[in-house]
Design a protein around this nucleic acid. Sequence first.
DNA 1: CACTTTGTTACCCAAACGGGTAAAACCATG
DNA 2: CATGGTTTTACCCGTTTGGGTAACAAAGTG
Lengths: 200, 200
Amino acid sequence: MTTEDKIIEAAETEMLECGYDAARMRSIAEKAEINKGLLHYYFKSKEALLTRVFQKTFSEIFKTLGEVFESDKPFFEKIELAVNQYSNFLIRHPRLPLFIISEMNRDPAKHRARMKKAGVNPPFGGLLKELEEGKKKGLVRKDLKAEHVVLNMIGLIMFPIIAKPMVMFMNDLNLADYKQLLHDRKKIVSEILINDIKAK
Amino acid sequence: MTTEDKIIEAAETEMLECGYDAARMRSIAEKAEINKGLLHYYFKSKEALLTRVFQKTFSEIFKTLGEVFESDKPFFEKIELAVNQYSNFLIRHPRLPLFIISEMNRDPAKHRARMKKAGVNPPFGGLLKELEEGKKKGLVRKDLKAEHVVLNMIGLIMFPIIAKPMVMFMNDLNLADYKQLLHDRKKIVSEILINDIKAK
DNA sequence: CACTTTGTTACCCAAACGGGTAAAACCATG
DNA sequence: CATGGTTTTACCCGTTTGGGTAACAAAGTG
């Protein structure tokens, strides 16, 4: 792994742990096991570094989410696929959701400005379009509200990730049990969502 | 409103906004529109003040949640009631969930120690017991996993609260629209949960 | 060896921090 | 005016902060 990679990785960890503004160049250097001088040799300023990290992180998650609805599978299989892909992504990046939510609440305008600057956008258009088509085809409940489908999906998937300590403690799970629970949950969540969407 | 009340209120706001450790006596005094001297006249230390605020806040939410399952209504009505009460509570205390989640992730052991010290405990026992009874009576799906019911419920209710800026922005809502969405959601969430729990 | 890239060390330095305190002032009530 | 509860002001003070830089060292390269 190159020094630059180590820096990017350390900066990502730091940013997700502490938030954008509270991220410290000192701790990034420490995490990357280099010194502050070298850090500034690779990235001329904190802004330059974090902009890059922010961009990389978000385009990764949005790409994953975007690809989900581009396959040509049946709609309900796509839901299942979306749940699986999104869950897997968050399992790999467990600190991301809390970071987004915190930043968004701390200063919504600044957060959106950063999103804009990084040129990243959440890809929910695909889901919304297919829901409309599904209604026409009679697959989808006519009175279903699209915005709630999105909220249901994200809430059901995200909560056990951001509440990991609570989940483990309340159910007295070790790490392996917890991972198993997250794994089991993909099917459970898919079923709940599809059940809710499906025309009766 | 007495000075002490103003202090408690200001301290709660500060604690929920900044977190337990990052809460500052200075800003609490400012928020309460008094000076630091007076603050220490009422509460001899930061620890004394925040312990009290923590205790008050949590016992309030846990009492609300606990009472839900003590009525003698039918089980599915209780679910609906629980969803309504919990939703209403979070609508009144929108910053609480993110505070809990952040504290829990920052330092789980310290957070639990504070809970213990304040003598507050989440009351999910009632729900779990009734689920078991429901299975025996044939009301509830035999293969339902209780831990997921809790996760589903919290996730579905909490997410739109902690993601308020996103919800408003993505759906282009003003504040009134957003509140309406939260209100509408109570019914939607109840139906999803009951549908999932009910024996087929 | 000459030159470039990569890496280290030490230091800058004003500014804010931040919980806590002492002493004085203000203000009711009797 | 005296008494006690309330409120203000000013100050403490060592510590940390924190992005950024300059000078020096090491290592790779042709």
